[in-house]
């Protein structure tokens, strides 16, 4: 049970936009007063996922929301693309798996950095990933 305090949208279609995503996530994380470590964690996770969005998804949209649930505040970041989608989700979340010459830490690593991680993807249907960090 949570209510949305604020919504922001960013387009990711070139490499510079990854930096913009990091900065927007940092700003909103500061707004809801996440601790420095928690800020760093969600900014890092967002950086990984924004890069994935660009490289594997061919670009897309990032939606940032600050949430409130009682005395807790949270930051949710969604990454939406209309790319080829992910065939085997379980495999993609495993450490060491990569299809793009990276270190294969992207998805699994990002998941460990946040409190909530949701992924919805199928071949040909694009990918939607949501991460949330609570205070």
């Amino acid at each position: 049970m949570s209510t949305i305090l604020k919504t922001e949208k960013l387009d990711v279609s070139e490499e510079q936009h990854i930096v913009a995503v990091r900065q927007a996530v940092r700003r909103l994380a500061l707004e809801i007063k996440l601790s420095l470590v928690d800020q760093t964690k969600i900014v890092t996770a967002a950086s990984e996922l924004a890069r994935n969005l660009l490289i594997y998804g061919g670009g897309g949209e990032v939606i940032l929301r600050t949430l409130s649930a009682g005395i807790r505040h949270g930051l949710k970041v969604e990454f939406i693309d209309e790319g080829p989608g992910i065939e085997d989700l379980e495999l993609a979340l495993r450490d060491g798996f990569t299809s793009g010459g990276g270190m294969g830490l992207g998805l699994g690593g990002a998941k460990r950095l946040v409190n909530e991680f949701e992924i919805d993807s199928a071949p040909g249907r694009g990918t939607r990933i949501g991460i949330t960090r609570w205070k």
């Binding site: 470590v37 760093t40 964690k41 990984e48 450490d95 830490l105 699994g108 690593g109 460990r112 950095l113």
Partner: peptide, 8 residues
């Protein structure tokens, strides 16, 4: 801390 959690 974040890098370790990330697995790097």
């Amino acid at each position: 801390i974040t890098l370790v959690e990330l697995g790097l």
